[in-house]
Amino acid sequence: MNEIFSATVIIGVLSSGIRLATPYLYAAIGETFGQRSGVLNLGVEGQMLLGAFASFYVALTTGSLVYGLLIAMLVGALMGLAMAYVTVNLHAEQGISGIGFYLFGLGMSELLFKMLLGTVETVKGFSVVPIPFLSQIPVLGEIFFQQNILVYIAFLLVPVAWFVLNKTTLGLKIRSVGENPEAADSLGVSVARIRYFTIILGGTLSGLAGASMSIALLNVFQQNMTSGLGFIAVALVYFGAWRPWGVLAGALLFSMVNSLQLWMQVLNVPIPSDIAVMLPYLLTIIVLVATVSRVRSPAALTKPFDRGD
């Protein structure tokens, strides 16, 4: 049991937690923008799957990872565009249309996979890029600075998202559209345009989340390979109370507990595997229960669903 506090394990848990958190970060930061502007997108998982397949297929056939990334973003953006049209112009119920887009992406990605590839293959994806000097730092270097490029980008996204949301006019508009569309509208902010922007941005980032799995972390595509990850990402937005740093905390907590339970199994900690697998889900709820009552954060609990009448 003492093994669990050894340096190997701690480094292992942290570095694998960071890897696991990557797809969640892309998807959840994208979702944060959407919800901040008042749109709940439950179709994240579908966007991820299509992005994952598109990038995998393009990387495999052209040999270019950059094209793979671009196509994943494009596919995600197109899904976002459709979602925006349906929810903004047609005022469709957001949660349900999201489930529709999820099913569409789930089915379409598998269908394309079957038609274009037929069988599971691997691709040479983004490899680990140690950051000069920083990666030499003992322990920390190994944890943080020996990852692939998409991991770094995902973590850089957090301060960027925070900056955009809180320190720019665009962020102000997004927030005001989410808080009080009528007021925003009367001040000359185009609610529709802002929401189109955030939903398409969300789709783009979800596409990237998919690509980060299929051509960076796993280097493989399989049907339904996200297996619920997109829904967890949506949940993490609530955990983070619609703030990028909170989302980061949630993604790291969830992922690290997940890698901890993998380590517990490896170290033969005597608990049934099913119970170990439960831990990240359980702890996410518990931590939220424990913190929310203490941390009073009015900004946290804005009304992401409120589209106002």
């Binding site: 799995m213 796993l218 990850l229 993998l262 199994q265």
Partner: peptide, 16 residues
Amino acid sequence: KVSWIGSFSDVALASE
């Protein structure tokens, strides 16, 4: 060392 990831579909957890 044996680990069970609790799923037949979670490719990401299998890889981690």
